[in-house]
Design a protein around this nucleic acid. Structure first.
Length: 639
RNA sequence: GCCGCCUUAGCUCAGCCGGUAGAGCACCGCAUUCGUAAUGCGGGGGUCGCGUGUUCGAGUCACGCAGGCGGCACCA
């Protein structure tokens, strides 16, 4: 029997040879490093016999795949340890995920954080025991019956969803066994001990809130201790840049019980907010958007007509007034208001595309468990706009939107943007032909804008498909920021129309689009992205003038005033403290420039400049400092 | 909304088996005028998240509520 290696070399073995034997034949080093192999592209256990000629590739610990394999085995290891320590606990699923793995268990009493060290200790024991792995193939029906018999009803349910004529593979690690597609290592020893259990959570069976809630245990696993330490270090560093922590430390904003899910922007935070908003305003203006402002609270009748009352009621804040019998609702989005502006006066096709923008203050009653710092709130500001256009204009408008968005993200320091195309959901309105057209238009637009996207099937809005632009926070959580949604429906529902070339009235297509999404969320991501060390144009405090001796106070005041007059955000620090103290304090609060004014500087009208992150000092004339800072503080669109 | 954990001074956190609250930083005062990451001394500051219960006695135990945190579900 011939076995072909990746380099084309052919080795001859007897039928039923295993990957372990092949690896050993090639060399003892490989035999030791091997984890699994690929047989004609299919993942294969090292101990599983090969019955016919095949091309193989041996996967070692250094392979890119190794981490996924280690984590999958670690998930099994976790399940073994848990079932041994907590009899009666049922297993369900346990996949490898980014940076680690988890396993979902069904159990009456939830786990406690104190259980983790105990489980981890048992896992390490099992690794030491090097329990051998064995693979068996059972008829599906036998497997169903078996798992029912041993009380593993979730496993049985999983197997029942496999067609009944198929066989399933069962993996044994010592006595413990589980349904699994594999592959697995020869023994539990190969997992190594570079793993750690990290957190406990509830999780719904099959991801559905209507189902039973399971107990999930998360862990992380790596090739060796060094990799594990590096990961733990990375997480620790990331936690230091958490926007909630920096928001407090840098005095940007706070939140409190009296306004759950809403942000109190402090002066410094609001300076940041405004710098960003002004920048977006200029970019939109340059891209031929017209800014408007619409009411915050509108009559229920409007929301009924737009469809929000029916589809979105539970997310809306509703206001009753005593004297009138009216019900009003706080807007969760700005689209109906924009349509009402569009409807004023007769619109011609010549006015399309009409791009209407608003920094809309929106309120949504989000589920309590969804709230997260300023990233997920109940009151937020959208950089919202609606493009009223014809069917023919969808692709062009979408493409230019994509280009605008990517340019803005680049200005703001984001190069790594994930784009998702969410297509028609099961619950939707409109004909398939219309959906075909809308989805095709979005695809064409992304190609025109040269954006690689990932398909997100069935995740579109009920009225149309959407593009989602996703950014990542410091600890790897993804946040949707930008979006563009095609809507063939809302304008018609609200009786908005334009007069076409043929003289007839047609409802315009609406493109709902946002670049930042919510300013609050975007600022949260931005704070973490820069770890609070913003580029100068965004920095809430751009420089601090710090004195060394009180003799320099009046000069420092003068210098501060001149810097401010030049449009810079500058504070002075005249406190009776040592310069060391001031340097340290302003560096910790992430002020980009410390401008030291001592006796010498006061005499020759200079400042000694120290840039955040460096120890270098440079003595410059006050006028030179002003022009240098002014130049650096120019927003990217005005450069 | 669901599961779990947490809530003590402005911040970070101690506080044992229930016996009546503590540190560092910050703040205030005084001294110090000092050249690039913490000057010294002194002082003020707490309904221990809220409520109910157990107890002679609750920061500590039990229950309920609220908020926060980690996930899940939902979602910009």
């Amino acid at each position: 029997m011939n076995i072909t290696l990746p380099d084309g070399k052919v080795l001859t073995f007897t039928r039923g040879v295993t990957g372990a034997e092949i690896a050993a034949a090639i060399g003892p080093g490989l035999a030791k490093a091997a984890l699994i192999l690929e047989v004609d592209g299919q993942e294969w256990d090292l101990f599983r016999p090969i019955e016919q000629d095949a091309r193989i590739r041996i996967v070692t610990r250094r392979d890119d795949k190794a981490l996924t394999l280690i984590r999958h085995d670690a998930a099994h290891l976790l399940a073994m340890a848990v079932q041994e320590l907590y009899p009666g606990t049922q297993v369900t699923i346990g996949p490898a995920i980014e940076d680690g793995f988890y396993y979902d268990f069904a159990r009456d009493t939830p786990f406690h954080p104190d259980d983790l060290p105990r489980i981890e200790a048992r896992m390490r024991e099992i690794v030491k025991q090097a329990r051998p792995t064995r693979r068996e193939v059972w008829p599906r029906d036998k497997a169903v019956q078996h798992f029912k018999d041993i009380g593993e009803k979730f496993k049985a349910e999983l197997i029942e969803s496999i067609p009944s004529n198929e066989d399933v593979s069962i993996y044994y690690h010592g006595d413990w066994h589980d349904l699994c597609r594999g592959p697995h290592f020869r023994t539990t020893a190969e997992i190594g001990d570079a793993f750690k259990l990290t957190k406990i959570s509830g999780a719904y069976w099959r991801g559905d809130a209507k189902n039973a809630q399971l107990q999930r245990i998360y862990g992380t696993a790596w090739r060796d201790q060094k990799e594990l330490d590096a990961y733990l270090q990375r997480i620790e560093e990331a936690e230091k840049r958490d926007h909630r922590k920096l928001g407090r430390e840098m005095n940007l904003f706070h939140m409190q019980e009296e306004a759950v899910g809403q942000v109190f922007w402090h002066p410094k935070g609001f300076a940041l907010f405004n710098s960003l908003r002004n920048y977006i305003r200029r970019k939109l203006d340059a891209a031929d958007y017209q800014e408007v402002m619409t009411p915050l609270i509108l009559d229920r009748k409007l929301w009924e007509q737009s469809g929000h009352w029916e589809n979105y009621r539970e997310h809306m804040f509703v206001a009753e007034v005593e004297d009138e019998k009216k019900t009003l609702a706080v807007k969760p989005m700005s689209c109906p208001g924009h349509v009402l502006i569009f409807k004023q006066g007769t619109k011609s096709y010549r006015e399309l595309p009409l791009r209407m923008a608003e920094f809309g203050s929106c309120h949504r009653y989000e589920p309590s468990g969804a709230l997260h710092g300023i990233m997920r709130v109940r009151g937020f500001t959208q950089d919202d706009a609606h493009i009223f256009c014809t069917h023919e204009q969808i692709t062009g408008e979408t493409a230019s939107f994509c280009r605008l968005l990517m340019a803005i993200y680049r200005d703001l320091g984001f190069e790594d943007v994930r784009v998702k195309l969410a297509t028609r959901p099961a619950n939707r309105i409109g004909s398939d032909a219309v959906w075909d057209q809308a989805e095709a238009a979005l695809k064409a637009a992304t190609e025109e804008a040269q954006l690689a996207y990932q398909l997100n099937p069935g995740e579109g809005a009920f009225y149309g498909p959407k593009l989602e632009f996703v950014l990542r926070d410091s600890i790897g959580r993804d946040w949707q920021c930008g979006t563009l949604q095609v809507d063939f429906n809302t304008a018609a529902r609200l009786d908005a129309a334009y007069v076409a070339e043929d003289g007839a009235k047609h409802p315009p297509v609406m493109l709902h689009r946002a670049i930042l999404g919510s300013l609050e969320r975007f600022l949260g991501v931005l704070i973490e992205h820069y770890a609070g060390k913003f580029p100068l144009w965004l920095s809430p405090v751009q420089a601090v003038v710090a004195t060394i001796v009180s003799d320099a106070d009046s000069y420092a005041r003068e210098a501060t005033a001149e810097l401010r007059a030049a449009g810079l955000r500058v504070e002075s620090d005249l406190r009776n403290e040592k310069i060391n103290y001031k340097v340290r304090e302003h560096a910790l609060s992430k002020v980009p420039y410390l401008l030291v004014a001592g006796r010498r500087e006061a005499e020759n009208r200079t400042l000694t400049v120290r840039r955040l992150g460096t120890e270098a000092q440079e003595n410059l004339a006050l006028s030179a400092v002003i022009s240098m800072l002014k130049a650096e503080a120019v927003p990217p669109d005005l450069k």
